[in-house]
C-alpha cells in the first residue's frame, strides 16, 4: 500500500434507505476493503463514530448486513460554525457467494474500523486434486 500519497478529501456517500425509516436521519455507506484467502473472507469497514454497542452485523441467506448507529456527540447547547461533513448512520449490504461458517465469524471494532472475519466452511475450501497418471 502506498502510504506516501496525500489523502484526498472525499464526500461521504449517502445511500437510500432499503426500507422506510421511522427515525429521521441520513444514511451513509462505509468505505470497505474485502479480501479473500483460501480459508476466509475478511472485511474492513470505516465506520467512524460507531461504538461497538451500536454496531449490528447480520448474516442470513447469504446476505450480510452492516448497520452502525451514531450516538450524538455534540452537546445540546452547541451551535454550528462550520459544517463540512454530515453525521448519520451507516448501512451496507453484501451478498456472499461462499458458504460461511456462521459459528466462527469474528468481529472486532477499534478506532472506528470494523474488522470482520468470515471463515469459509470446510467443504468450500479449494482442494488440490491430484491427477493420477494412468
Amino acid at each position: 500500500m502506498t502510504d506516501s500519497k496525500e489523502l484526498q478529501a472525499r464526500e461521504k456517500q449517502e445511500v437510500a434507505a432499503p426500507a422506510e425509516h421511522t427515525k429521521p436521519g441520513l444514511l451513509f455507506t462505509p468505505a470497505v476493503d474485502i479480501f479473500e484467502t483460501e480459508s476466509q473472507i475478511t472485511l474492513l469497514a470505516d465506520m467512524p463514530g460507531v461504538a461497538s454497542k451500536n454496531l449490528n452485523i447480520d448474516l442470513r441467506d447469504d446476505t450480510l448486513t452492516l448497520t452502525g448507529d451514531i450516538d450524538p456527540f455534540e452537546g445540546p447547547d452547541e451551535k454550528d460554525i462550520l459544517i463540512e461533513y454530515e453525521v448519520g448512520k451507516y448501512f451496507r449490504q453484501f451478498t456472499l457467494s461462499e458458504v460461511i461458517d456462521q459459528e466462527k465469524i469474528e468481529a472486532n471494532l477499534s478506532d472506528g474500523v470494523l474488522r470482520l472475519t468470515l471463515p469459509k466452511v470446510e467443504k468450500a475450501k479449494p482442494r488440490k486434486i491430484a491427477i493420477n497418471a494412468a
Binding site: E6, L7, Q8, K79, D80, L82, E84, Y85, E86, V87
Partner: peptide
C-alpha cells in the same frame, strides 16, 4: 439539516461552539 460545504482538504472538519 444544514447542508455540508466541502473544503476539498482532508480531513473534513466540523466546528461548533458553545458559551
Amino acid at each position: 439539516p444544514q447542508q455540508a460545504v466541502a473544503s476539498g482538504v482532508y480531513p473534513a472538519l466540523n466546528v461548533t461552539e458553545n458559551k
